[in-house]
Computed example of a mutant assay.
Amino acid sequence: MNNFRTLITRKSNNDTYINDIELKNIDWLGNGDVLIKVKYSSLNFKDALSAIGNKGVTKKYPHTPGIDAAGIVVESENDKFSVGDKVIVTGYDFGMNTNGGFSEYIRVPSEWIVKLPKQLSLRESMIYGTAGFTAALSVKKLLDYGIKQNNGPVLVTGATGGVGSIAVSILSKLQYTVIGLTGKPEYKDMLLKAGAKDIVLRKDFNDASEKILLSTKWNAVVDTVGGNLLENALKTTKYNGCVTCCGNVASYKLSTTVYPFILRGISLLGIDSVQCPMDIREKVWEKLSTDWKINNLNDNVEEISLEQVDVNIQKILQGKLKGRTIINLAL
């Protein structure tokens, strides 16, 4: 086991952050009782923030971003994992304040690792990644809440993004009527192919009237963006419906009133994929490999090399990526 490639984000002399691929030795890796050879990773908005020095994501640099990784166990000090096991790592502190998946090798605590379900390939697991896992947690919340297929449509905001596009596909597979909300009308065909019944454009959805409630339209909402879109989602959800919340790409601020909750009985359900308990984590990954495995999983996926990550970081920050982008560490 010789030197391996890893992407390092460093602060430059002019206070900007630069991403370069460097060669490192296994001894360079941090603490953890399992050593994994990474086969695939994926690109998420949080990775892009880490790669430009966002201290809300990563506090100390130099750093290797990448909140997702899938690979093969090379060494293990824990009896739960054996050499040759195929595994997934997402969540916890991975890729945030500990080095992440944009690397040919990682060393992590065994408590962060999920064994790859038999019906899923390593590549497929990273097409899902944290985005797909978050989408699945959102769907699980709707099911646990009791949202039925025949009670009305489910709106998915940010529908062309990683979480949104997978949420559309899972809900469609489960026979829900799905409406995709997007600011990109040119991607309508993509969303219809993913299973959306129709789309709503962001410009038509945003309401600046400051009315405390609006006409009801949705039985439930999977919100991936936050801000004003989440505010209007709450105002337009039907009586006793629910809205899940998992993102803040539009804004981390939420301006609302109590009226959706006390006049319509709406529930706002938080989604956290980082500290999700392992028992739920394993069950959701199993669902993603069986009952919820989407038929079009390989659609709208771009596969890149480690050398192409920096360019794609800029694209995701500019909102120019659609679907999922995965990193093949063998390229």
Rank of each mutant, 00 (worst) to 15 (best):
T157H: 01
N151G: 09
Y61H: 15
V274L: 08
S305C: 05
I147E: 03
G71P: 12
T16R: 07
K211L: 09
K118G: 07
S267Q: 13
V154A: 01
T177E: 08
L321A: 01
S110N: 15
L23W: 09
K46H: 05
D15F: 09
E282N: 15
N219W: 14
G183A: 10
R264F: 12
V89R: 11
I18D: 12
G32R: 03
V154R: 00
V284R: 02
F81V: 10
G53S: 04
K322P: 02
G129T: 09
L268Q: 03
K322D: 04
A48K: 01
L329Q: 12
L23P: 10
G56F: 10
L122I: 05
Y92C: 13
F102T: 14
M190Y: 02
L230K: 04
K118I: 13
K293I: 05
E303V: 09
P65H: 14
L331C: 09
K37E: 13
D85L: 04
T134A: 01
G183I: 11
S172Y: 11
V114P: 15
D33G: 06
F261Y: 07
G71C: 12
D20R: 02
T160I: 00
L317F: 05
N206G: 08
Y40M: 10
V243T: 02
E210N: 15
K217I: 14
K11V: 02
L143Q: 10
A194N: 06
L288G: 07
G226P: 08
